[in-house]
């Protein structure tokens, strides 16, 4: 399959990319979400601005928290010692995207701009309180991950805006994990759950929970978080959280003929329990 015809331009810097982008243009990084979309004729941009070689979009820096350049590949994130230490759930999620060939070229920025509800990294970014850093013609802005994902394949990005990096707080003292129920054929998440527990002694001072796959976007789950916070994360608290999470995602459920909404809603509770168990290691 050939994608539609388009004009192609390669940018050497973020400034150049912003100046090159046209009204019906899209940014091309690894292309591992965008090109399949174009080949399937789900989108047909008139212009691609290649941002794949812009040095300032590359790399991971650990300075108190993590800053991950938008052009960093899933493989680079999954295998980064800094990410493994400071946000183990993100390293795990990025290591579960597609397969090795996809992870070698697909980028974090491209992944979240695409906003596939069944993808893994968005769920972790929402749970762990990530910030998406964006540049546009009018300057820079930062959006909390949970506000960045708006709806099915829909983000807070405005026309012409470019994701430059994603920032994450240091989670090295948290118990965090991402666990998914992979589709048996595609390995996309039927349900994916990310948890981040901040423990103070034996008590959970703060719990962060997000669900993806079962929903049209990664959803922050306040009810489940409230059920865990202030507890010792004992069986009763975990059961209460698994019940509450079903209500948290009720307005955002997605499903298909094989895995309908009601089934995914139930499984979100099951996978929350598994994610908590994994986080507690």
């Amino acid at each position: 399959m050939w994608p539609n015809k388009f004009d192609y331009a390669r940018a050497g810097s973020v400034d150049e990319a912003l100046s090159l982008i046209s009204e019906d243009g899209k940014y091309l990084a690894g292309g591992h979400s965008l090109l399949p979309v174009m080949k399937l004729r789900l989108d047909a941009p008139g212009q691609l601005v290649d941002i794949g070689r812009i040095p300032e979009l590359q790399g991971i820096s650990a300075n108190g928290g993590l800053t991950i350049g938008a052009g960093t590949t899933h493989d680079a994130i999954a295998t980064s010692a800094d990410v493994q230490a400071m946000c183990a759930a993100l390293a795990s999620a990025c290591g579960q995207v597609g397969d090795q060939g996809v992870r070698n070229f697909g980028t974090l920025g491209g992944n979240i701009a695409h906003a596939d509800p069944a993808s893994d990294p968005p769920t972790v970014l929402v749970a762990c309180g990530a910030t998406v850093n964006i540049r546009g013609a009018d300057g820079s802005r930062s959006v909390a991950a949970q506000d960045f994902f708006v709806d099915l394949f829909e983000t807070a990005l405005e026309d012409g805006e470019l994701i430059t990096s994603v920032s994450l707080p240091n989670c090295s003292d948290c118990q965090c994990a991402y666990v998914k129920f992979p589709h048996p054929a595609s390995r996309y998440a039927i349900v994916g759950v990310a948890v981040c527990l901040k423990m103070d002694g034996g008590t959970c001072a703060q719990a962060d929970v997000a669900v993806g796959g079962a929903t049209v976007k990664a959803v922050k789950c306040a009810g489940a978080e409230a059920a865990l916070a202030g507890t010792t994360v004992d069986e009763a608290a975990v059961n209460a959280a698994a019940e509450a999470v079903k209500a948290d995602i009720a307005d955002w459920l997605a499903g298909d003929i094989a895995y309908p909404e009601s089934y995914r809603q139930q499984m979100a509770g099951v996978y929350l329990k598994r994610a908590i168990a994994a986080a507690q290691g």
Binding site: Y8, L28, G31, L35, G101, V102
Partner: peptide, 19 residues
């Protein structure tokens, strides 16, 4: 369609020649 690009495994149906 797997090939190696600069030694890395790549699915060559998902990259433009210009890339």
């Amino acid at each position: 369609c797997t090939v190696h690009l600069d030694g890395k495994v790549l699915k060559s149906c998902t990259l433009l020649a210009v890339q």
